[in-house]
Every structure is written in C-alpha cells, then in structure tokens.
C-alpha cells in the first residue's frame, strides 16, 4: 500500500511539475516571454492566424480561446483585481473596450497600414482597433417538415408560428446578444415592443450566438438570430464532410445589424518595449492583407478597402449600433430586459 502510494505521489508530482514548467517556457526570439492573447472566434481561424504570424515572428503567442462573453468577463475581472493578464485581447463588443479605455488601461497604438482601412472602421478617440465586421442574419432550417414558412423581418419573429422554436442569445450573458437586443430597442422606436413580442412567443435563450446555428442544425430549435460568418463556416464544413446543410440565412428587410470585433493591447507595467512591439506587430498582422484574408475566409467582413466583401447581398441595409448610447443606457436597459425575459 505504502509503496503504491509513494509511487503515485512521485508520478503525479513529476507530471505536474513538467506540465507547469512547459507553461512558463520562454520563446527563442529574444523577448522575455510569450504574449498572452485572449481571443474569441472559430478555432480553425485562430489556429491559422497563429501559425501564419508565428511563421515569421517565431513562437511568441500563447493564445487562449474563449467565447465572447467569457473573454469579456475575464478581462473585466482581471482589470478590477489588478492588472489585465492578457497582453492582447481580440473579440467581444466595443462596450468593454470603451470602458477599459476610459479607465486608461489600454496601450496607445497606431496602425501601420491605417490608410488602407475604410474610414467607417477607424476609431478616432479610443485606443483600440476594429479588426473585422460581422452581419447578423435570421437563420432557419431548410427542413420543410420542421418549418413551412420563412420570416422575412425581425418583426416576423413575433408571429405565432414561431412560438417556442425561435432562439436568440441571452443579452445578460452574451455581449453580442446585448447589442442585438439594444438595436431591437432602437429599431422599434426606443421601446421594448419587439422584445416583448419575442418573449411572448417563448423565445429560447442561449448562452452565445455561436450555439444558434448549430442548434438549428441539431434541431434544438428551428430558427434564430446569428452572425452570417457562422453560416459561411458551416457551409464549408458541410461540403468538406459531405453532408447536406439544412440551414438558410435570411437577410431581414429591416436591415442587417452590424457587429464589430475590436482588438486592444492592455497596458502592463513590467512588459518590455520589445514585447510591446511584438504585440503591435500582431495587431498589424490582424489587419494585414494576409490576416484579413484568413478572417474573410472564415466569414468575417474585412475592414480593408483592398478586400472585396462579397458576403453582403446588394440592397441590404446595414444597421449600425450606437455603442455609446448602448453603453450609457446599459444598466437601465438590462433591468428592463430582465423584467421581460427573466421569470
């Protein structure tokens, strides 16, 4: 018994030490440590971005993938209980970036290729950069046994035929969902009517937007609101794995809600300038033609003028969210939202 116990102890101690040791590995490129990067987004795209960047810069990135909501919670908790642990964070919504920048926690930064970025994506007064844009569409199953009609607008989602089969992300858990809900609020003339009708229609709330397209394919629900890039990726995956994708994206008549994915470098006292430069290089890479192409292939809309955004059909209006307005009214809006949806 004793021998076995000692054996186990030694084994676990060794194994853990070696694992912990690995984490603190220093890269061979001359900087003191790897860059800690928090990212949200599809895994394949992130892997591809990492390997492409590291093929020239060396093994300098230590990327952890989170969901948009997780990323934002983590960065915020970190900022409130000390320094932000990540050197770079990419994804989630502008509200958290604005908040952090107002607390003076973001590293000032100028893009090398700022001239190639379309004007509407340039942030003047904040220390973060918009990397890509994504469009929200209604997605539905193409299985006519499950759903016989198609909604054409957001307002249609309140129709009784979509009772209990329609899903959207929970605004109290997901940043994107918060953006969607607040633009619904703005869209219906600054009232909760649309949201109320969705709740009356027994909307199913999910943790994130990401789970909506797969939920529709899974059959968990029949339609929902989700970013178009997910549709692009799922279509590619279906082709690759040889199955028929029973999913259709509908561009709503009110217009598509535009979401933006920012990136920022966090201020850190003990980070060397050399390392900060590597961080800036990575941000530059995210906006480079190579980096943007990788993201475009994953379904995102490039901010560069030299990449053609073929995803948006002609004639579809793009609704831009007033993030400043959303941020100021966040608390009141959330409280109203909870009164409707949380029972």
């Amino acid at each position: 018994m004793k021998k076995i116990l000692i054996l186990c102890l030694t084994f676990f101690a060794l194994a853990t030490l070696s694992a912990c040791g690995k984490e603190k590995d220093t890269p061979e490129t001359g900087v003191e440590r790897k860059l800690v990067v928090y990212m949200s987004g599809p895994e394949n795209m992130i892997n591809s971005l990492e390997s492409t960047f590291e093929s020239t810069a060396g093994d300098v990135l230590d990327i952890t993938i989170y969901s948009c909501g997780q990323l934002r919670d983590k960065v915020w908790i970190e900022s409130q209980s000390g320094e932000i642990e990540a050197d770079i964070f990419f994804g989630s919504d502008p509200i958290i970036y604005n908040k952090l920048d107002n607390l003076n926690l973001l590293e000032p930064f100028t893009l090398t290729e700022s001239n190639i970025v379309k004007d509407k994506y340039i942030i003047e007064n904040h220390n973060y950069v918009i990397v890509v844009e994504r469009y929200l569409t209604i997605m539905k199953t193409t299985d006519t046994n499950r759903l016989t009609t198609s909604p054409t607008s957001y307002a249609d989602l309140g129709n009784s035929e979509y009772d209990s089969v329609f899903a959207m992300a929970d605004a109290s858990l997901s940043a994107t969902a918060f953006a969607v809900a607040s633009s619904f609020y703005e869209m219906s003339g600054f009232n909760m009517n649309l949201l109320n009708s969705l709740n009356d229609n027994n909307v199913i709330l999910t943790k994130s937007n990401g789970s909506i397209p797969s939920g529709i394919i899974d059959g968990t629900f029949d339609l929902g609101i989700a970013p178009y890039d997910a549709f692009v990726r799922l279509s590619k995956n279906a082709t690759k794995n040889d199955y028929e994708l029973e999913l259709e994206a509908i561009w709503p008549t009110e217009g598509t809600i535009s979401l933006i994915r920012p990136v920022a470098i966090a201020k850190q006292e003990d980070r060397s300038d050399a390392l900060t430069d590597v961080a800036k290089d990575f941000v530059d890479f995210l906006l480079s033609k190579q980096g943007q192409t990788i993201q475009f292939n994953s379904g995102f809309i490039s901010v560069r003028s030299d990449i053609n955004n073929s995803y948006l059909p002609a004639g579809v209006t793009v609704i831009n969210i007033d993030w400043d307005y959303a941020a100021i009214n966040e608390a009141t809006f959330k409280s109203n939202y909870e009164d409707i949806f949380k029972n």
């Binding site: 919670d73 958290i96 899903a167 027994n202 709330l205 999910t206």
Partner: peptide, 18 residues
C-alpha cells in the same frame, strides 16, 4: 434557455454584466 434563473446562473449572469 427559458429565462429561469437560479442562484448560480444569476451569479454567472452578474459576472457577465461586469
């Protein structure tokens, strides 16, 4: 998914509200 909260999910939710 049906908007029913218990204490643990409420805590997680308030974490998400920063």
């Amino acid at each position: 998914p049906i908007g029913t909260e218990v204490l643990t999910t409420r805590i997680y939710g308030s974490l998400s509200s920063l």
